[in-house]
């Protein structure tokens, strides 16, 4: 079937089996490799991206649901060269180690901050349940709080 959606702002049309996981479409057909395969069972969160601004685990999301939607992957999280506050915070705290799970975490965090701009530690515990084997959780928590600060600072600086 033909499926059309916007990905990172680009209109895209594909001829694909509608039951194909969105993850494989993004990685293998659109060559956006920042979104990772971890388990294929929606258990680890490495494949997290945004569909209409919401966090979605794309390994378990059939591409047919994406029809007419706006998809954002880690490659589209920044605004051109201007990194997203989550990415800026990740840089400041030097979070990544192996880096494999980090795009999923950053996408989940960006989705969290768009719903809860100033998350408490408990909000972070309840919302961010992805798996990181290097166990960079300590810096991630700091980076999430830092990202919230950067985001609110940006909001203040924006002309209303």
């Amino acid at each position: 079937m033909t499926i059309s959606f916007n990905i990172n702002g680009q209109p895209t049309s594909l001829d694909v089996d509608g039951d194909t996981p969105l993850l494989w479409v993004v990685r293998d057909m659109l060559d956006l490799k920042g979104t990772k395969f971890g388990c294929g069972k929606a258990a680890c969160g490495a494949c997290t991206l945004h569909v209409d601004g919401k966090a979605i685990r794309s390994c378990s999301y059939a591409v047919k649901y994406a029809e007419g939607k706006n998809i954002t992957t880690i490659e589209g999280l920044s605004n051109g060269d201007q990194l997203h506050p989550v990415q800026q915070a990740w840089m400041e705290e030097i979070v990544p180690q192996c880096g494999y799970c980090q795009p999923g975490f950053m996408m989940a965090t960006a989705a969290l901050l768009s719903e809860i701009p100033n998350p408490t530690d408990e909000d972070i515990n309840n919302n961010i349940v992805n798996v990181c084997r290097c166990a960079t959780y300590y810096r991630m928590r700091k980076a999430i709080h830092r990202a919230a600060d950067i985001q609110s600072q940006n909001a203040k600086n924006q002309p209303s």
Binding site: K41, A55, Y61, N127
Partner: peptide, 18 residues
């Protein structure tokens, strides 16, 4: 919850791959 909705993983049909 905010960024961990049921729909983060569960869609309108079973996903028998996953």
């Amino acid at each position: 919850v905010a960024a961990l909705q049921c729909q983060t993983c569960h869609q309108s049909e079973n996903n028998n791959h996953a």
